[in-house]
Deep mutational scan, measured.
Amino acid sequence: ETGKELVLALYDYQEKSPREVTMKKGDILTLLNSTNKDWWKVEVNDRQGFVPAAYVKKL
């Protein structure tokens, strides 16, 4: 879809709370919100949640 910003997972991340999502290094995720410098909201496999901003980079 146009207008979607994507990020690349630089590291594996295992969710530690229900508000977070698990990702694997190399995953491409849809970026939903990056206003917080530490935690970015992403969508992966129809799930939305937060990942550490340092673990992903914008494509």
Rank of each mutant, 00 (worst) to 15 (best):
K58T: 09
N45F: 11
G3R: 12
V56I: 08
L29D: 00
D27Y: 05
M23D: 00
D12V: 02
G49V: 04
N45R: 14
W39A: 02
A53R: 13
Q14W: 13
R47L: 07
L6Q: 09
Y55G: 07
Y55H: 09
A9D: 00
W40C: 04
A9E: 01
Q14S: 12
T35Q: 15
G3S: 12
A54G: 11
K37R: 11
I28R: 05
L29E: 01
S34D: 15
E43G: 08
R19D: 12
M23T: 03
E5T: 14
D38C: 14
K24F: 11
K25Q: 09
A53M: 04
R19C: 15
V42R: 00
E1W: 03
A54L: 10
D27I: 04
G26D: 05
G26N: 06
V56L: 15
K24W: 10
V21W: 04
E1K: 12
D38S: 09
P52M: 02
L6W: 12
Q14A: 12
W39M: 05
V56R: 00
T22P: 06
V56C: 14
T30Y: 10
N33Q: 10
A53P: 06
G26W: 05
K16L: 09
V7Y: 09
L32G: 01
D46C: 13
L29S: 02
E15H: 08
N33L: 08
K16E: 07
L8W: 07
D46N: 14
Y55S: 13
W39S: 02
F50I: 07
V21Q: 03
L29V: 07
R47P: 00
R19P: 05
L59F: 09
V56K: 00
N36W: 07
L8N: 02
E1N: 14
L59Y: 08
L32W: 05
T22N: 06
Y55V: 08
D12I: 02
D27G: 04
V7L: 12
K24S: 09
E20V: 05
Y13V: 01
M23C: 06
Q14K: 12
K24G: 05
R47D: 03
K57T: 13
V21G: 02
N45Q: 13
R47T: 07
R19I: 13
R47F: 05
D38K: 12
K37I: 10
Q48I: 14
Q14V: 14
N36V: 05
D12Y: 04
Y11N: 09
K16S: 10
T30F: 12
L29P: 01
D27N: 06
E5S: 11
N36F: 08
E1R: 10
E1H: 13
Q48G: 06
Y13S: 01
D27R: 03
K25T: 07
K57A: 12
I28P: 02
L10V: 07
N45I: 12
D12C: 06
D38N: 12
K41L: 15
K41V: 14
V44R: 15
W39L: 03
R19W: 15
E1F: 04
S34A: 12
E20A: 06
P18N: 11
R19N: 14
D46H: 11
V51K: 00
A53T: 06
Y55W: 07
K25W: 04
L31D: 00
V44N: 15
G49K: 02
P18V: 09
E5R: 13
V44K: 15
E1G: 14
Y13N: 00
A9T: 03
S17L: 08
V44P: 00
K41M: 15
V42F: 00
L59W: 08
K57S: 11
T2R: 12
T35C: 14
D38W: 15
K25M: 08
T35A: 12
V56F: 05
V56G: 02
T2L: 12
Y13L: 02
K41D: 04
T22V: 03
A9H: 01
L10W: 04
K16P: 04
T30G: 09
W39V: 03
K57R: 13
L29A: 08
K37F: 07
S17E: 09
Y11C: 15
A53F: 02
G3K: 14
T35I: 07
L10H: 03
L8G: 03
N36P: 05
T2P: 12
F50H: 05
K58L: 14
K58Y: 10
L59C: 14
L29Y: 09
D12Q: 03
V42K: 00
E5D: 11
K24I: 08
D38E: 12
Q48N: 08
Q48R: 10
L29N: 01
D46I: 06
K25Y: 05
R47S: 06
A9I: 02
T30E: 11
P52R: 03
V42H: 00
G3L: 12
K37T: 11
L8T: 07
K4M: 11
K24N: 09
N36T: 06
E20I: 04
V7P: 00
E1Q: 14
E20Q: 10
L59H: 05
L6R: 10
L10M: 09
P52V: 02
E15A: 15
D38V: 13
Q14E: 15
S34W: 07
V51F: 00
P52C: 04
G49E: 01
Q14D: 14
Q48D: 07
D38T: 13
G49T: 02
N36D: 15
L32K: 04
E43R: 09
G3I: 13
E5N: 10
Y13I: 01
K37G: 10
L10I: 10
L59P: 04
K41R: 11
T22H: 04
L32A: 03
I28W: 05
V51H: 00
T22F: 04
N36L: 09
D12P: 06
K58S: 09
V42M: 02
V42T: 01
D12H: 05
N36S: 10
L29M: 14
E20S: 06
I28Y: 06
D12E: 05
T22Y: 03
V56W: 01
L29I: 08
G26C: 10
E5F: 12
Y11F: 13
R47G: 05
I28V: 10
S17A: 08
K58I: 14
A53G: 05
L10R: 05
F50P: 00
K57P: 02
E20F: 06
E43S: 10
P18H: 10
D27C: 07
L8F: 08
L31Y: 02
W40N: 01
W39E: 04
F50L: 10
G3F: 13
D46T: 10
N45W: 09
L8H: 04
E43N: 06
S17Q: 08
A54T: 12
N45Y: 13
E5C: 15
Q14M: 12
P18Y: 08
V56M: 06
T2C: 15
D38R: 13
V51P: 00
Q14L: 13
E43A: 11
L31P: 00
N45V: 12
L6N: 06
E15G: 15
V51E: 00
A9C: 13
K24E: 06
N33Y: 06
V44C: 11
L6A: 06
L59S: 05
G26V: 00
T2I: 14
A53N: 03
Y11I: 08
E15M: 11
V7D: 00
V56Y: 01
R47Q: 08
R47M: 07
V56S: 01
K41F: 15
A54F: 08
S17G: 13
T30S: 09
R47Y: 05
Y11L: 10
K58F: 10
T30C: 10
N45S: 11
F50M: 08
E20M: 05
N33K: 07
E43P: 00
D27P: 00
V21M: 12
L8Y: 10
V7N: 00
K16T: 13
R19M: 13
G3D: 12
A9P: 01
D46E: 12
Y13M: 01
V7Q: 01
P52L: 04
W40Y: 07
N45A: 13
L6E: 07
E1M: 09
K41Q: 12
I28K: 06
K4H: 13
W40H: 02
D27W: 11
K57W: 08
S17N: 13
K24Q: 10
Y11V: 11
V44L: 15
N33M: 08
L32N: 02
E15P: 14
V7S: 03
V42I: 07
Y55M: 13
A9V: 10
K4I: 13
S17R: 08
V7F: 07
D46Y: 08
M23I: 15
K16W: 04
W40M: 03
M23K: 01
G3T: 13
E43L: 08
W39R: 03
Y13F: 08
